[in-house]
Simulated scan of single mutants.
Amino acid sequence: MRVQAFMFYGSALFFLATDIVYWLWSKDWTGTTALGLAVGLAGLVGFYVHFTVRRLEAANGGPLYEDDPEGEIADAAGELGFFSPHSWWPLYLGLSAAAVALGVVFGWWLVILGVAAALLSTIGLVFEYYRGHFAH
């Protein structure tokens, strides 16, 4: 996965060069700012992937199977992680976000209720597996 990190670093450099050329030719603040944000976002994703790969390699004791040129498909076999089988919390979170969006149209009281519902839904989503039937 180190290749993906360098791909995002390369994208950040490309956006930076494009941003400089765009500013010199157009003197437009809007496009320059948008390209500057693209530089930051590509660099941020590249840094995150690079940091995560380093951490996984340290935990694994060597390079990951994706980076092994002699690797086989069977090297990736095994448990990949825990994935939630079902959850109602994303529905509640989406309804809360809809209430916030509609509150901007109909009244600020609905925004306040939507934000409170979104906060409770986020807490419920994060702590879903700390209680009840699925607690571990």
Rank of each mutant, 00 (worst) to 15 (best):
residue 1 M to R: 05
residue 1 M to C: 06
residue 1 M to T: 09
residue 3 V to H: 12
residue 4 Q to G: 04
residue 5 A to Q: 09
residue 13 L to T: 08
residue 13 L to G: 04
residue 15 F to H: 11
residue 15 F to A: 10
residue 15 F to E: 03
residue 18 T to Q: 11
residue 18 T to P: 00
residue 18 T to K: 11
residue 20 I to M: 01
residue 21 V to A: 15
residue 22 Y to G: 01
residue 23 W to R: 06
residue 27 K to G: 09
residue 27 K to T: 05
residue 28 D to F: 00
residue 29 W to Q: 05
residue 31 G to E: 07
residue 31 G to L: 00
residue 31 G to S: 09
residue 31 G to P: 04
residue 31 G to M: 04
residue 32 T to M: 10
residue 33 T to A: 14
residue 34 A to I: 15
residue 35 L to H: 05
residue 37 L to R: 04
residue 38 A to I: 06
residue 40 G to E: 07
residue 42 A to W: 04
residue 42 A to N: 12
residue 44 L to M: 13
residue 45 V to W: 06
residue 45 V to C: 07
residue 45 V to I: 13
residue 48 Y to V: 14
residue 51 F to Q: 09
residue 52 T to L: 11
residue 55 R to A: 14
residue 57 E to G: 08
residue 58 A to D: 09
residue 58 A to N: 08
residue 59 A to C: 02
residue 60 N to W: 13
residue 60 N to V: 00
residue 60 N to G: 08
residue 64 L to G: 03
residue 65 Y to R: 01
residue 65 Y to A: 03
residue 66 E to L: 08
residue 67 D to R: 02
residue 69 P to Q: 06
residue 69 P to N: 03
residue 69 P to G: 05
residue 69 P to E: 07
residue 69 P to H: 02
residue 70 E to Y: 10
residue 70 E to M: 06
residue 71 G to L: 00
residue 74 A to S: 15
residue 76 A to G: 14
residue 80 L to I: 13
residue 81 G to I: 03
residue 81 G to D: 06
residue 82 F to C: 00
residue 82 F to H: 07
residue 84 S to F: 05
residue 85 P to Y: 09
residue 87 S to F: 04
residue 87 S to E: 08
residue 88 W to I: 13
residue 89 W to R: 10
residue 89 W to G: 01
residue 92 Y to R: 02
residue 94 G to H: 08
residue 94 G to E: 05
residue 95 L to C: 13
residue 95 L to S: 12
residue 97 A to R: 01
residue 97 A to Y: 09
residue 98 A to E: 05
residue 99 A to Y: 02
residue 100 V to R: 01
residue 101 A to W: 07
residue 106 F to K: 02
residue 107 G to N: 02
residue 108 W to N: 11
residue 108 W to R: 12
residue 109 W to F: 07
residue 110 L to Y: 11
residue 110 L to K: 02
residue 111 V to H: 02
residue 112 I to Y: 10
residue 113 L to H: 03
residue 114 G to V: 09
residue 117 A to I: 10
residue 117 A to K: 03
residue 118 A to R: 03
residue 118 A to D: 08
residue 118 A to G: 14
residue 119 L to E: 08
residue 121 S to P: 03
residue 122 T to D: 01
residue 124 G to Y: 04
residue 128 E to V: 04
residue 129 Y to K: 11
residue 129 Y to N: 14
residue 131 R to A: 14
residue 132 G to I: 06
residue 132 G to E: 04
residue 133 H to S: 06
residue 133 H to C: 01
residue 133 H to Y: 13
residue 134 F to P: 06
residue 135 A to H: 13
residue 136 H to I: 06
